[in-house]
Design a protein around this nucleic acid. Structure first.
Length: 565
RNA sequence: GCGCCCGUAGCUCAGUCAGGAUAGAGCAUCUGACUUCUAAUCAGGCGGUCGGAGGUUCGAAUCCUCCCGGGCGCACCA
């Protein structure tokens, strides 16, 4: 339930009116019984000429009633028209095209909508849809063995924004970063560290192993290690040192990026508590783990995976899967009902086996939902910047942020569907013009703030309190660009809900651009200050609502809403 | 070979999950609009076999089948 007015609520209202009309008509035997159960839609038509909300009910019922859709629509209209006329929020119902029924909002509704936004303030667009269910979003979870790269920057933006969205629609959303501080990769990092330390102390060339970490940052870390601990210590200790340093860097960087994790969950915690062994025990007990060729296998094929998976290697060490499975079990044991993992594109083969593992443990694998974030290509001067680590030309997340800033990075990363590969245009992201979507949107906000500063009372003026009655707004507003803007404001709640439910933050980004566009059009067409006092007051109220929603929408993306630019 | 993602205007992409009316936006290009609240803006023109072929439907970019192109996976790596 929501306590504010929005276009979504009107959709329900219209749906109800149509069902009532259908029931009346079947009672009068004008339509065959049961038609009121038909699934029809009430949606915003693409073309605004077709009204504010349109229903396909007559097209759906046409063949069932053995009538042409337009005939059904005609009969429905006869019943609906008087109802619509009595309705405060609706103006007209019309039949159009092949049999669509087009509804138009009454001015009264648009005025009350604005008042409702003014009354709800930052809460406008929030829902209780998630029913306080606990959802855990795990993202980035990069190995602490090297700098964060672009695809992780994308995941970070995505995960953080999903948390914000899920909270907005009524979930209790938590964010976690799983730190692989205990696996084989960390050992390799230690060996690479040792090589670099020896190199620095002149103890030999110490060539980095084939599967080690040749990056320059390891040399830096080795230097730091020497400065703090001298040449003492084995590879293990050096590895731990490097991991802690890198982890600290990641934490700092993500914080600068506006991404807060509720918890950094270390694999070593899982291991030291014996969670992996517990999982093995449960799996054996349930008959889904078996020994073969010296290894312990998960019977993943029982649960739809392509092949069985190794949990414990023949040398006795664990695969990545086992502790990670223990971690996911731990999430469920902590009462999270919905687990969302954001993974890179190279991990999609992993989804099946994790779900299979959860099923094998007696949980519902379906409670795990994976968002695969696709690759990021960097473009500069129209050319792709090669991402070769070997050639040393790859750009880290940190470098990207230095280049384009947090706002542009976050916005660009969620402008596209996570499942689409992203071409990140660095030149565009740096551009301070309308071509840059981030600036276009932020400029709309700054422009409104500028008007408020000019307005009587200055920036602190309480515009909202000047208008109390819908009539005041109805009298002051009327220009098509004003009405279009109000309607768009009324779309905000459903955009938030859909973006959260379908885990598609790009909807919010695209809404922001639409809203900014509608505002700029209005701004060009209509003068706000210095008009008739009633008109000025109403327009100020309108742009204040617009400012409120722009700010809230940008906030959902973690992007700043500047007051001046 | 199997699995996942992508294919829509010259370029970058919305729209596909939830089928609807004449397929949208930005960029590029061309033409216009600042004595007035920020021109970091707005208006208009040009531009399409929605990768292809079948099928389902009153109606398909959207659903189903097959095919073609591009990317990525298919480890006792993570």
């Amino acid at each position: 339930m929501i306590d504010y007015l929005c276009n979504w609520a009107l959709r329900d209202r219209i749906k109800g009116l149509i069902v009532d009309a259908l029931l009346d008509m079947t009672r009068e035997e004008r339509l065959p019984a049961g038609v009121e159960d038909a699934s029809f839609t009430v949606e915003k038509p693409r073309d605004p000429e077709h009204g504010d909300l349109a229903s396909n009910v007559a097209l759906v019922l046409g063949s069932r009633c053995k009538m042409s859709p337009r005939e059904v629509a005609g009969q429905l209209k006869d019943v609906l028209e008087p109802v619509v006329r009595r309705d405060d929020y609706l103006e007209t119902v019309e039949i159009a095209g092949p049999g669509f029924m087009n509804f138009r909002f009454a001015e009264r509704y648009l005025s009350e909508l604005l008042l409702s936004i003014g009354a709800s303030r930052q809460g406008y667009g929030d829902w209780d849809w998630g029913e306080e269910k606990k959802v855990l979003v795990e993202f980035v979870s990069a190995n602490p063995t090297g700098p964060l790269v672009l695809v992780q920057a994308r995941s970070a933006a995505l995960g953080d924004i999903l948390c914000r969205l899920l909270s907005a629609v009524g979930y209790r959303a938590s964010s976690e970063y799983y730190v692989n501080d205990a696996g084989r990769q960390v050992e390799k990092l230690g060996v690479s560290m040792q090589c670099r330390v020896r190199e620095l102390t002149g103890e030999g060339e110490g060539s980095i192993p084939e599967d080690g970490y040749p990056g320059e940052y390891v040399r830096d870390l080795a230097r730091e290690y020497l400065a703090e601990h001298g040449p003492e210590g084995d590879a293990r200790r050096m590895g731990e040192f490097a991991v802690e340093r890198l982890l600290q860097q990641h934490q700092d960087l993500l914080q600068r990026y506006g991404v807060e994790f509720d918890r950094w969950y270390r694999e070593s915690e899982i291991r030291s508590r014996g969670e992996a062994e517990k999982v093995l025990e449960i799996l054996r007990h349930r008959g889904y783990a078996y020994d073969e060729e010296g290894a312990v296998w998960l019977r993943a094929t029982e649960f739809g995976d392509d092949k069985d998976r190794v949990l414990v290697k023949s040398d006795g060490s664990y695969t990545y899967l086992l502790p990670d499975l223990a971690y996911h079990r731990d999430k469920l044991e902590r009462g999270f009902e919905w687990l969302i993992d954001i993974l890179g594109p190279d991990h999609h083969g992993y989804v099946q086996r994790m779900r299979a593992g959860l099923d094998a443990l007696g949980y519902d694998g379906e409670s795990l939902e994976v968002v695969l974030s696709q690759w990021v290509r960097l473009l500069q001067g129209g050319e792709e910047i090669s991402m070769s680590k070997r050639a040393g030309t790859f750009i880290t997340m940190e470098e990207l942020l230095e280049e384009v800033g947090v706002d542009a990075a976050r916005f660009f990363f969620v402008m596209r569907s996570p499942s689409s590969p992203l071409d990140f245009d660095m030149d565009l992201a740096r551009e301070q013009s309308s071509e840059n979507p981030v600036y276009y949107a932020q400029y709309a906000h700054a422009r409104i703030c500028s008007v408020m500063r000019e307005a009587d009372g200055g920036e602190a003026a309480d515009i909202m309190s000047r208008i109390r009655e819908p009539e005041q707004l109805a009298a002051g507003l009327g220009h098509p660009s004003e009405l279009a803007l109000v309607r768009l404001l009324g779309d905000f709640p459903e955009e938030v809900l859909w973006a959260a439910r379908s885990l598609e933050p790009q909807r919010v980004a695209s809404y922001i651009l639409d809203l900014a566009g509608a505002f700029h059009v209005f701004y060009t067409r209509c003068r706000i200050l210095g008009e008739d006092p009633g008109v000025s007051a109403a327009r100020l109220y309108l742009v204040d609502c617009c400012r409120l929603i722009l700010a809230r929408a940008l906030d959902l993306l973690g992007v700043a809403a500047p007051r001046r630019m």
